[in-house]
């Protein structure tokens, strides 16, 4: 059953000679409980697509049916309410409110819904427990590591039990260990029946996805199903070098064995960079590891 239906959706910024086409006649149908990874180079319209799907933005042309209902013409406040009840956002830069504690951050969407204070706190505590952050509930975001912050952000996204989780490069600012933790969380969320849309640059992430959508210049260029646990076929072409599995631990981790596939620092890595990949990010990660 389709939960998201985009029909020839275009988004155009600016006007006259200065127009930018961020989305060009994108048609996409997403069924309930899909885990979709959206890949594509910078500026390919991934984030705009997420904003349109997340009701933060309105398409310039085209039709968008969310949960079988057209949401193109509804008013801003109604959109905010649908967003609140149906969609949870996770961002690359976490976007927690720095002046609120972890608990308050997680409980905030409930406040906008009008849930009473006691119930709000209880729900938020439960959610923090679910992401393993219940011991940090009175901390402020700046007292946590980025992985922990992302966990809290996910708890916040989940607090209204949304049908759709939209994550815009959630692991983009995280180290590999935290990335793995976060992806496991997303995997859990997916298993409980939510639809997950996840933008990523990292082909490894597609291991968790049931479907991978590739975008370029505002259009969906490729849409392939992918077995959970395997790197998507097309995405795998962007991986430079595979490392054989070594330890029993890696096997036990199952899908989490993603870590293994990340190339280790090697003297000739620059030479191995291929054109379709995101060389900048890889180099950065490796540079970090050197430290």
């Amino acid at each position: 059953m389709s939960i998201i239906e985009l029909n020839d959706v275009s988004k155009i910024y600016g006007f006259g000679d200065a127009t930018t086409v961020a989305l060009e006649e994108v048609s996409l149908t997403i069924d309930e409980n899909e885990f979709i990874a959206v890949m594509g180079p910078s500026g390919s319209g991934k984030s705009t697509l997420m904003n349109v799907i997340g009701l933060l933005d309105r398409p310039t042309y085209g039709k968008y049916m969310l949960n079988k209902r057209s949401v193109d013409k509804i008013r801003t406040n109604r959109r905010a309410k649908i967003r609140r009840d149906m969609i949870g956002f996770v961002f690359q830069s976490f976007n927690l409110l720095p002046r609120l504690t972890v608990l308050e951050n997680v409980a905030l969407p409930l406040a906008y819904k009008g849930v009473g204070l006691k119930r709000r706190i209880k729900l938020a505590e439960n959610m923090l427990e679910r992401v393993g952050m219940d011991d940090k509930k009175y901390f402020y975001p700046n007292q946590l590591s980025s992985g922990q912050i992302q966990c809290v952000a996910i708890a916040r996204a989940l607090i209204n039990t949304p049908k759709i989780i939209i994550a815009d490069e959630p692991t983009g600012n995280l180290d590999t260990t935290s990335s793995r933790l976060i992806m496991e969380l997303f995997s859990d969320i997916h298993k409980t029946g939510s639809t997950v849309l996840l933008v990523t640059h990292n082909p490894e992430i597609t291991r968790y996805a049931s479907r991978v959508v590739y975008m370029r210049d505002g259009a969906v260029v490729l849409d392939e199903n992918s077995a959970i646990g395997d790197i998507a076929e097309t995405a795998s072409k962007t991986i430079y070098k595979k490392r054989p599995r070594k330890t029993i631990d890696d096997d036990l981790a199952g899908v989490s064995a993603i870590m293994d596939s990340i190339p280790q620092k090697s003297p000739n890595k620059k030479a191995s960079v291929k054109k379709k990949s995101k060389p900048g990010r890889k180099r950065k990660n490796n540079a970090k590891r050197k430290k």
Partner: peptide
């Protein structure tokens, strides 16, 4: 922006 993304309406 954050508040709006998590569902705050304009009036809120």
């Amino acid at each position: 922006g954050i508040r709006k993304s998590i569902g705050a309406t304009n009036s809120q």
